[in-house]
C-alpha cells in the first residue's frame, strides 16, 4: 500500500535528519518537509538508490558523498538580477542611504553559487560604493562558496542576465564585466575583492557582525516557522538601527516577532528597514 510506504519513508527521513545532525552537525530539523521529501526523492532517483537505507549507508561511510548530498538537498538554483525590480529598488532607494555611511557592511546570507553576490557588487560599483563596502557572503555549503568565489557562470545564461541587468537600471555594457571562453563567463575578480566568503549555517550559527544591509532572498522559504523565527532574530541582532533587510519576493516579516521593529519600505520588493 502506497500510503503505508509513504509513512515509512517519512519516518526514515526523520531518523536520517537526526543522524545527520549527530554525525555531521548539520541540522535540517527546521526545514519545511514537503520540499525535503522532494529533494530526497530526487536525489535517490539521480543516484539510483532504492531506499533511504541505501542512502544512509553511503552518507555515513563517505563524507565526500555527504558533501554532494548537502549540495543537492539545499536548493542552489539561482540567477543574476533575479527580480530586476528588486535590484532597481536597491539601486535607486537603498544605495543613496547606504552612501551616507563612510564604510558599508553587507551580509549576503545564503549566497549559493554567487549570482546574486555578483549582481549586488555590480550595482555597488556603478553607484560608486564598491570600494568602501565589505560584503560577507555566507552559505551552509563550502562547495558552492568556492564556486561563488570563482564567479564563473554558464555563457548560455548571459543573454537573459543582460536583459535583467538593464531592467535593473544597468549603466554600461553588461559584457564589460566578464570575459568569455569555452562556454563560460568569468566575472571580473575585482568585483569581489572586498568580499569575505565563509561557511555559516543559519540553523545553528550565531550573529557575527553588524550590517547596514542584509540580503537573504529565497532561503527562508525552505524553513519552517520556528526556524524562520530563529533566523529573523539573528538578522535583527546583526542589523544596525535603520539598517535594511531584503527578503525574497514571496517572503515576509509580517508573521514574525520582530515585525514591530521594522517598516516595510518596499512592499512588492520586500525591503524592510529597522526602525528601533
Amino acid at each position: 500500500m502506497k500510503l503505508e510506504a509513504d509513512a515509512l519513508f517519512e519516518q526514515a527521513v526523520e531518523t536520517l535528519i537526526q543522524d545527520i545532525h549527530a554525525q555531521y552537525g548539520y541540522d535540517f530539523s527546521g526545514y519545511a518537509r514537503a520540499s525535503v521529501y522532494r529533494r530526497i526523492r530526487r536525489f535517490l532517483g539521480n543516484k539510483n538508490l532504492a531506499s533511504i537505507e541505501e542512502l544512509r549507508k553511503n552518507l555515513f561511510q563517505d563524507s565526500y558523498f555527504f558533501e554532494n548530498f548537502l549540495q543537492e538537498i539545499t536548493v542552489n538554483v539561482t540567477e543574476m538580477f533575479r527580480d530586476p525590480t528588486f535590484f532597481l529598488a536597491l539601486r535607486e532607494n537603498v544605495m543613496p542611504i547606504l552612501s551616507t555611511y563612510p564604510f558599508i557592511k553587507i551580509w549576503d546570507a545564503g549566497c549559493s553559487t554567487g549570482e546574486e553576490l555578483f549582481s549586488l557588487a555590480i550595482i555597488l560599483k556603478e553607484e560608486g560604493l564598491l570600494e568602501r563596502t565589505k560584503i560577507y557572503a555566507t552559505d551552509i555549503n563550502q562547495k558552492v562558496l568556492k564556486q561563488a568565489k570563482e564567479g564563473i557562470f554558464p555563457l548560455a545564461n548571459m543573454a537573459a542576465y543582460t536583459t535583467a541587468y538593464y531592467a535593473a537600471g544597468g549603466k554600461t555594457e553588461f559584457s564589460s564585466y566578464y570575459t568569455s571562453s569555452y562556454g563560460s563567463a568569468k566575472f571580473d575578480a575585482s568585483l569581489v575583492k572586498n568580499v569575505v566568503f565563509y561557511p555559516h549555517n543559519l540553523a545553528t550559527d550565531s550573529s557575527f557582525n553588524e550590517f547596514h544591509l542584509i540580503l537573504c532572498r529565497n532561503v527562508l522559504i525552505y524553513f519552517n516557522r520556528t526556524l524562520q523565527e530563529r533566523v529573523f532574530g539573528l538578522f535583527d541582532e546583526s542589523l544596525v538601527s535603520l539598517g535594511y533587510l531584503a527578503l525574497g519576493k514571496k517572503e515576509t516579516l509580517a508573521m514574525s516577532q520582530i515585525n514591530g521593529h521594522y517598516t516595510c519600505v518596499d512592499k512588492s520588493n520586500r525591503i524592510y528597514r529597522k526602525t528601533t
Binding site: A32, R33, A34, S35, R38, R39, V75, V77, T78, N218, I221, Y222, G248, K250
Partner: peptide
C-alpha cells in the same frame, strides 16, 4: 508550490 501536512504552503525555487 508545495503543500505541507499542517495545511500550510511552502514555496520552492528549485529546478
Amino acid at each position: 508550490v508545495l503543500l505541507e501536512k499542517d495545511q500550510t504552503f511552502s514555496l520552492d525555487v528549485s529546478e
